[in-house]
């Protein structure tokens, strides 16, 4: 029996990873619904749980690949590896409606530009003050402050170290959680009550799960408007962070 289990674990790595992540999502949906009243998006909980499990995997095995170092869970490395990750991110562009996007007009463009530049500058500045000096790490940490996708995509493109990539993800995930949690509380204060400001909000905040979760908890009718600009955010971040922004940081650092 043990032999059969060993064989299955070794041969069916990717399939097992699908099942494990599915189980984790299911548990996260339950936690989101019953413990947070739906305020914190299930995807944010799942990602935080995965980071916690990666920490546990690191403690358990002393390896560098988190939970993927645990025997039998190596399939996670393939499922969450660069190939499938980039493939899935490109696929999200399919949901962008160009005609609707054009209606967002100037405000959307300004919001997207500010929403990329401001968090990046904050992230790079803080990384600098915490002692990072090489352009690759600085750019990756700045990109992580844009969204938790832009960070690892930029880090992978530039060849950043895994701890730096993990930090950039942690920053982006924290940002998403903060956006989800605090949007309903500050919505009135920042005038977030109409489609136009929702588009500005989506462009500035960027993180799709943060924006979708935050707007859903504020006014569900605003979700598509925020998501529309937010879906551009990651693509733009992935385009400019490892290119223009990296060259600027390298010139300054």
């Amino acid at each position: 029996m043990g032999e059969i289990v060993q064989k299955i674990l070794a041969d069916q790595g990717l399939v097992l990873a699908f099942a494990v992540v599915g189980g984790l999502m299911l548990a996260s949906v339950a936690v989101s619904r019953h413990l947070t009243g739906g305020r914190i998006h299930a995807s944010a909980i799942a990602i935080l749980a995965a980071l916690a499990l990666a920490w546990w995997g690191g403690v358990l095995t002393g390896g560098k690949k988190g939970l993927a170092d645990v025997p039998g869970l190596a399939g996670l490395a393939l499922m969450g590896g660069a190939m499938l990750r980039d493939f899935a991110i490109v696929a999200t562009a399919f949901e962008v409606d160009v005609i609707e996007a054009r209606k967002a007009g100037l405000m959307g463009v300004i919001a997207l530009a500010l929403g990329t530049i401001v968090p990046f500058a904050v992230g790079v500045g803080l990384a600098w003050s915490f002692g990072y000096r090489d352009a690759v790490s600085l750019t990756t940490l700045g990109a992580g402050t844009v969204t938790y996708i832009v960070g690892p995509v930029t880090g992978a493109a530039l060849g950043a170290s895994s701890p730096v990539i993990a930090l950039s993800i942690a920053t982006g995930v924290l940002k998403a959680v903060l956006v989800m949690t605090f949007t309903p509380m500050v919505a009135r204060l920042i005038g977030l009550d109409n489609p136009r400001s929702a588009m500005a909000f989506g462009g500035l905040m960027g993180t799709v799960s943060g924006v979708a979760g935050g707007l859903a908890a504020t006014d569900a009718r605003l979700v598509p408007y925020g998501a529309l600009t937010a879906t551009f955010h990651t693509g733009i971040g992935c385009l400019v962070c490892p290119s223009i922004f990296f060259l600027i940081v390298r010139a300054l650092a």
Binding site: A17, V21, L24, M25, S43, A46, I47, A50, L51, A52, L53, A54, W55, G57, G58, K64, K65, G66, L67, A68, L76, A77, M79, G80, G81, R85, A88, Y148, I149, P152, S162, P163, I165, A166, I169, A170, V173
Partner: peptide, 10 residues
């Protein structure tokens, strides 16, 4: 992305 997070050097 969840799988990606699970294999980071946290």
């Amino acid at each position: 992305v969840v799988a990606m997070a699970a294999q980071q050097n946290v």
